[in-house]
């Protein structure tokens, strides 16, 4: 009798961690007198998390197909810097943006070739790629922030539709819709889940595993590049340190949302909830005036806790099977 009541509650808590935790923060913030519940803060909350959300979408696709891409921070940084540098040297904005995105796709293709066709461990290859790209970013900027000289470039992210909704948010929404559609309603998405669930089975079922899995890395590179361009446009500068913690941050946010490192489980909308949750958490910390290093400690502990729980859930599953 007792188990019958607790079972559904338990299920809700294990499957819907992020929304429930978000709800808790919203309720908690009601008790504090902060500017949390202002229109400005709530729009800023979505706006400032948009670039991370865009990166998280591609990251989710890779994760679902059983890979992992730790170079997203590097791709984001370098493509943003490329866009700024090209525009400053007189190249028209659409061309510069296109070159940046192609750069992201190319890096994704290299990652995909090395990990899928050459069968190497994706996390260490993409970690190395991240280090390499950080070096590229530092060389391009001589490790100093560079600012954009063309004011039109700022409009790319900062233009406000109806005077309220920033263009950055629109780009984010479009990316989310495209990725949700890709994963849910296309054969490519189905194949991704199959490959992430069991690579060998997918291979023998006749799925073209090699190109499909490589394509996930390309998508991740493209979304990271879009995020980089939008970030550069939003703050009108490029800096080699922007992407330092991105990969870890996104990884934990995506796992909080319910996409697993094991592959084959998860979804783009879940990742959206995960990223928004961590975003709201750190926004609430800021509103409560918590010291930034203590925030870093809390976020670090939180990340370790979430990833640990994900591992632990898999351990329990392994032992019960």
């Amino acid at each position: 009798m007792n188990t019958k009541i607790t079972e559904p509650i338990k299920n809700i808590f294990s499957a819907q961690k992020a929304p429930i935790a978000m709800l808790l923060i919203f309720i908690t913030m009601l008790f504090f007198k902060t500017p949390f519940y202002t229109r400005y803060n709530l729009i800023d909350l979505i706006n400032s998390n948009s670039t991370l959300l865009i990166v998280a979408m591609g990251f989710t696709v890779v994760l679902v197909a059983g890979g992992v891409d730790l170079s997203v921070g590097g791709v984001m940084t370098v493509s943003g810097i490329i866009a700024i540098k090209l525009i400053n040297s007189g190249v028209s904005i659409p061309v510069a943006v296109l070159v940046s995105i192609l750069f992201g796709a190319a890096i994704g293709a290299i990652n995909g070739y090395l990990t899928v066709y050459q069968n190497t461990e994706p996390f260490i290859i993409t970690l190395g790629m991240g280090v390499l790209l950080t070096g590229v970013a530092q060389e391009l900027t001589t490790a100093r922030p560079i600012s954009g000289e063309n004011p039109a470039f700022q409009n790319l992210a900062n233009y406000k539709l109806f005077g309220v909704v920033p263009a950055l948010v629109l780009v984010m929404i479009v990316t989310v819709i495209v990725v949700v559609w890709l994963l849910r309603s296309t054969s490519f998405g189905r194949n991704c889940y199959a490959i992430g669930g069991d690579y060998e089975v997918a291979k023998y079922s006749g799925i073209n595993v090699l190109p499909t899995k490589t394509l996930t890395f390309v998508i991740s590179g493209v979304t990271a590049a879009i995020a980089g361009v939008m970030l550069s446009s939003w703050v009108n500068s490029g800096n080699s340190t922007y992407g330092d913690q991105t990969a870890l941050y996104i990884a934990s946010a995506v796992v909080v949302g319910g996409t697993s490192f094991a592959g084959g489980i998860g979804g783009a909308f879940k990742s959206l909830l995960g990223v928004m949750f961590i975003g709201i958490l750190s926004n609430a910390f800021n509103m409560l005036n918590i010291d930034s290093y203590i925030q870093q400690l809390l976020v670090g502990l939180f990340i370790v806790g979430i990833i640990w729980l994900d591992c632990y859930a898999r351990k329990v599953k392994r032992e019960t099977v």
Binding site: I124, S252, Q296, V299, G300, C311, K315
Partner: peptide
């Protein structure tokens, strides 16, 4: 946590580095 895969250990220790 049963994080016996190299990738799982990588993420956990990466997080610990932040801590």
């Amino acid at each position: 946590g049963g994080a016996f895969k190299q990738s799982e250990a990588l993420f956990l220790t990466y997080g610990m580095s932040v801590v």
